[in-house]
Design a protein around this nucleic acid. Structure first.
Lengths: 353, 353
DNA sequence: ATCCCCCATCAAAAGGTTTTGATGGTGTGC
DNA sequence: GCACACCATCAAAACCTTTTGATGGGGGAT
């Protein structure tokens, strides 16, 4: 209160002097590690209050070896959130993780750049890595540093890493393909992104398996996430204009799924009657497209909650499952895959909500 | 590489020993503060690489007094993001700030709880406070601690605080009211939330001024953010069922604006012909309502970018404006306030987009 | 040949906390 | 009245870095 605008921070030593006790007594009074008499404690708190003391977190971490902070790393696709669609994904994931961390009163650090020596280390007790690539370098680096890591979605090349939360793509994508087939789809094409992560890999595998089991050829193509809208439209147009065009397409990126409906419209193809469309991630694009597009929701909220739980359990030394935690994606059936008179055959409710 | 899974971290001392140089030489080799001969530098880097050394961030911060991290605090309304609508706001704000920080390669910390002694301090060089309350306690605390603060939206009771980014509510709300009047609205009611922040205060003031200037009575009411949907619906029903009901309502929270349209529908009031509806924040609720609801978008992305810029300028000691930075909210006119045949009179384009 | 300066490196201090073995005084049990 | 235990407090070490004044040796200028 009486202080000038001194840049100088109050230290534990000054509190000790003012309260006429040793430094360790002040520390113990605050931490409660050892008993301190009531009278002394009062004097310490009074002194601390008058001086406006608050402990230096760096000094504390240096001594204890813990910071009480958890890092979060997102891989590039999200970091460069140029389109509104990608921004929604990024925001939802970051927001969910932040919400879960706040709820548990633990600080969360967005790690800017692990490799950049200029940005050098951040003090974190553990680190969440969301949507790692196959054999991700960031993961390698963190493991080398002995930082406890929990991944949200698994690194496809590190199936052995037990501390992970992953989506059950197999079930969800199979359900989606069954649904399309039930609605009368015959030639189902899959368009995944080119980034090598679980979200692109697993559905591709599931699609192949499903096609093999159903005696169909697995038509797939790449639609790189870095494509511009015009670029994506071009590739889609070529596919839909060709002979033996698919009668259903599953597109990973949902803004590109919306472009599929646009291109179909231009070509005079009716959705869903001539062409069914589905996306492997939900966003405003899929919800507001005409017609609304069936999409798999990545359940970022559940992923985040499970990931944070796992991390905190690990840091607390509590027992953790020795297999990845599995979260079910949410399949949102919409008009883009619902043909009049077709029967889904799986008993699912037909309408949204 | 050859290390066991030793919890033990490698320190600068071990690197120095291995490279046969002093500790300070290692430090200088990394920081480049003083020149080091090429031969020595090579030896140091080699030793560091072999040992897997990475500097301890806490020790560094302790010594330098800087952590390279910036904090972010959001006030409770967002922290408790129970509805999808509030979650969208929270996510967008958090995501935007995170994006801007990542772009500038600075770490961002979500501060869990400033007052909680258990959570104790986080090492931050500065702190962003988003949507502070009037005379906000968090702000008081941060200022007491001498932490450089930048607010996103201003604390209504601290107009003197120069380091702020604020929305220009006056212009936007005036434009909205003019628009409603041009569409034929006669009795315009305003329903703000009960939390005491700029977003609730400024529009109220603007509404009063505008009503006074146009010789109308300023009809206002509170619709607390903590109300359940049913609770909100009840209050709205009472208002719309009364004699001399308003013919236009501006509702702060956009999910409640959507409820206004529902209640109007139940009561047989047509939107916009019998009742116009507008919201003071945009969200999926307003966009997808029937009819879509005119809303003011809070431009979280611009707020975040400006706030981060301001903070980094402050921390770098660069000159900063001595007045709050002003950002214009985006007015999104939609069908809920557009009557057939009415003329807006201000030359604005009529369609969305 | 001498002086001076600069370059590369070193040693030591400082930064603020927590941890822990030691110390002195007070009360309990016999 | 003595030994023992315990309670409250203290002093010092440890955590790992960056910073800075000091040191020694080599080269250029005179």
């Amino acid at each position: 209160m009486g202080d000038r605008t001194s840049r100088r921070k109050v230290t534990i030593r000054e509190v000790a002097e003012r309260a006429q006790v040793s430094i360790s007594t002040v520390s113990h009074a605050f931490s409660g590690v050892r008993p301190i008499s009531q009278a002394t404690r009062d004097r310490v708190f009074a002194a601390a209050g008058e001086l406006g003391y608050d402990p230096n977190p760096s000094a504390r971490s240096l001594r204890t070896g813990r910071s009480g902070l958890v890092g979060l790393v997102l891989r590039p696709r999200y970091a460069v959130a140029h389109t509104r669609d990608r921004a929604e994904t990024f925001n939802r994931l970051v927001g969910s993780v932040a919400t879960e961390m706040l709820r548990r009163k633990v600080g969360l650090i967005h790690v800017p750049d692990l490799d950049d020596p200029a940005t050098a280390g951040v003090p974190m007790d553990g680190c969440l890595v969301a949507h790692p690539y196959g054999g991700d370098g960031v993961l390698t680096e963190l493991l080398r540093r002995n930082v406890p890591v929990v991944t949200i979605e698994e690194d496809p090349e590190r199936p052995a890493l037990p501390w992970a939360v992953r989506l059950d793509y197999t079930t969800a994508v199979t359900a989606l393909l069954d649904h399309l087939a039930a609605q009368g789809a015959d030639r189902i094409a899959l368009l995944t992104g080119s980034e090598d992560n679980a979200w692109n890999r697993r559905p591709r595998e599931t699609h192949e398996t499903w096609c093999a089991e159903h005696g169909r050829s697995a038509r797939t193509a790449l639609l790189s996430e870095s494509l511009s809208d015009a670029g994506a439209a071009g590739r889609i147009r070529r596919m839909l204009a060709g002979r033996r065009r698919p009668d259903a397409v599953v597109v990973a990126t949902s803004d590109f799924a919306a472009i599929v409906t646009q291109v179909a419209d231009e070509l005079g193809l009716r959705v869903p009657d001539d062409l069914m469309v589905a996306a492997l991630t939900d966003s405003e694009h899929s919800r507001r497209s005409h017609p609304p597009i069936t999409a798999m929701d990545l359940s970022h909220e559940h992923l985040a909650a499970a990931g944070v739980d796992l991390m905190l359990a690990r840091l607390a030394g509590a027992p953790t499952p020795d297999e990845p935690v599995v979260v079910a994606p949410d399949l949102r059936l919409r008009a883009s895959t619902r043909r009049a008179g077709a029967d889904d055959g799986d008993g699912r409710p037909r309408g949204p909500r």
